[in-house]
Design a protein around this nucleic acid. Structure first.
Length: 474
RNA sequence: GUGGUUGUAGCUCAGUUGGUUAGAGCAUUGGUUUGUGGUACCAAGGGUCGCGGGUUCGAAUCCCGUCUUCCACCCCA
């Protein structure tokens, strides 16, 4: 045998059953999106590199797949010159490069690659809004369900190609949007039968406020990244990391109440008000959170819980207000299955100021794994063929196809076994495909213009007319 | 990007300190049964042991490289 073919690292093939299950999730999310008034758009798989680079931080830039320019570009009109600092580049890890070497490297990369695969759906959406600003009626509510690519090392629930399902609103600063998104999360997970998800919420303004109070405004990112790890590595390690990043001992001691923050939304908010009493931004953040929580208490959630989590940071640089993250029900070991937030100036990076946006994202592939683990897919999802006709020969096949035609017109999924194979083989095929009904039309049935209908789960069979057949399999 | 882990038939896996022709179960194909599947019995086909190099009289087994799998970190959906 020749060398077995295979697919690249972190990608997957999907068999018919898996596709059916994935479509079930897609359809559920899509119909909720539309119920909430979102309209679909699609953007290209790859964008110009400059559209994507620098939008996700250094770490994100590293994970962007670049597409090599086509053609014999190395030797055509303008031969490519290697960067002057080529020797330094060869021997120095990317993270340790100086500014001038990084510029050198970027220049070189730009010569050989000008396109890159979509890394998420939010940045392409921002580009879309700015590019089509004159055609768009604000506020604009769009949803987008498409694959994205990241050059990450695969792990559980982590792939190099995966789907995101995003819903965003741009052009409205109203906090009612945040409220609606919490409702939307809740509706989708309820419809998927996934009970006990936690929608964690925080506000960037609170994080800024805390940083201000402890005198570390300039270290906001370092500070939030460290705080984000509280659950994972514990209080002491977090403090250690903060010290390492140059946050003062005095500042860290002011954080003390934060580590022990407990209780329901109201209690946490009260403690935060004390900590942030001197910070205008911080208090604004609290006010926003309270607004959302009050509204949700009134409206109520069906299956999810809204929880304030001050340690929720999320790496993305562009969030300015609310931050969301959804975790799977307790006991399921899985990273977040959704995330989102408010970004007041996302389109600013493309030159359009003062358009506020807020959005959420569902991680299809992770939701799939969670539903699979909890056995929550409806059994009917992958049953595809309603009835299979056994093939007995040419005359019989034609007769069968006439019946199949009217079955199809009535909306049934019906098919004829393509070859006049042995009965046993055809029956085995029907069995493997989990076809609920098999119809036999042989010489005798053909002569009497009737059908033998067999119920594959009970094994019973009966002779009947086409109308009787339709009524039985309905 | 860092550290570890995995790869033998279509699938799940055995394979002794390196030693004849690499095994099993399931699946496939044929038969017992020429119009009856899901359970039985009989038989057959199917493998450059991930790929490339090295050590050795001899490598699935030891060494190096590479790809891949899964996991932790980083980061994230």
């Amino acid at each position: 045998m020749a060398q077995k073919p295979s697919i690249p690292k972190g990608t997957r093939d999907f068999n018919p059953e898996q596709v059916a299950k994935r479509n079930y999730i897609f359809d559920t999310i899509k119909s909720s999106f539309e119920r909430f008034g979102f309209q679909p758009i699609e953007t290209p798989s790859f964008e110009k590199t400059e559209t994507l680079m620098g939008k996700y931080g250094d770490e994100g830039d590293r994970l962007i797949f670049k597409v090599l320019n086509s053609g014999n570009f190395l030797f055509e009109k303008n031969p490519i010159e290697l960067p002057q600092s080529i020797d330094v580049l060869k021997t120095t890890p990317l993270d340790n490069l100086g500014v001038s070497e990084k510029i050198d490297l970027n220049k070189f990369v730009n010569r050989i690659s000008g396109k890159a695969l979509r890394y998420d759906l939010t940045v392409p959406f921002a580009r879309y809004v700015v590019q089509h600003r004159n055609e768009i009626e604000l506020p604009f509510k769009r949803y987008q369900i498409q694959p994205v690519w990241r050059a990450d090392r695969p792990q559980k629930g982590r792939f190099r190609e995966f789907y995101q399902c995003d819903a965003d609103v741009v052009g409205s600063k109203s906090l009612w949007q945040e409220v609606e998104f919490v409702q939307l999360y809740d509706e989708v997970f309820t419809n998927l039968g996934l009970k006990g998800t936690t929608i964690k919420i925080n506000n960037r303004k609170i994080l800024s406020g805390i940083a201000e109070v402890i005198g570390a405004q300039d270290k906001l990112i370092d500070f939030t990244v460290a705080l984000d790890k509280l659950d994972k590595i514990g209080e002491e390690k977090v403090k250690e990391e903060m010290r390492g990043k140059g946050i003062s001992e005095e500042g860290i001691s002011k954080l003390q109440p934060l580590f022990t923050l407990k209780g329901d939304f109201g209690n946490q908010v009260e403690s935060l008000k004390t900590i942030l009493s001197t910070s205008e931004v911080g208090l604004k953040g609290i006010e926003e959170l309270e607004f959302i929580d009050n509204a949700i208490s009134e409206l109520q959630l069906q299956s999810a819980t809204l929880q304030l989590d001050v340690t929720l940071a999320r790496g993305l640089n562009y969030y300015t207000g609310a931050i969301f993250e959804v975790s799977a029900p307790q006991g399921i070991k899985m990273g977040s299955i959704g995330g989102g937030g408010r970004y007041d100036d996302l389109t600013g990076i493309f030159g359009l100021k003062d358009v506020s946006g807020v959005g959420i994202s569902f991680g299809l592939d992770r939701i799939y794994l969670v539903l699979e683990e909890l056995n929550l897919f409806p059994v009917t999802v992958s049953n595809q063929v309603d009835v299979l006709f056994i093939n007995f020969g040419e005359a019989e096949a034609l007769f069968a196809l006439k019946a199949i035609k009217s079955l199809r017109e009535k909306g049934f999924n019906a098919e004829l076994y393509p070859d006049k194979a042995k009965m046993k083989k055809q029956m085995t095929y029907a069995n493997k495909r989990s076809v609920p009904y098999v119809v036999l039309v042989g010489e005798e049935e053909l002569k009497n213009n009737e059908f033998t209908l067999k119920n594959m789960s009970s094994g019973e069979q009966q002779k009947c007319s086409l109308d009787e057949l339709i009524n039985t399999i309905k």
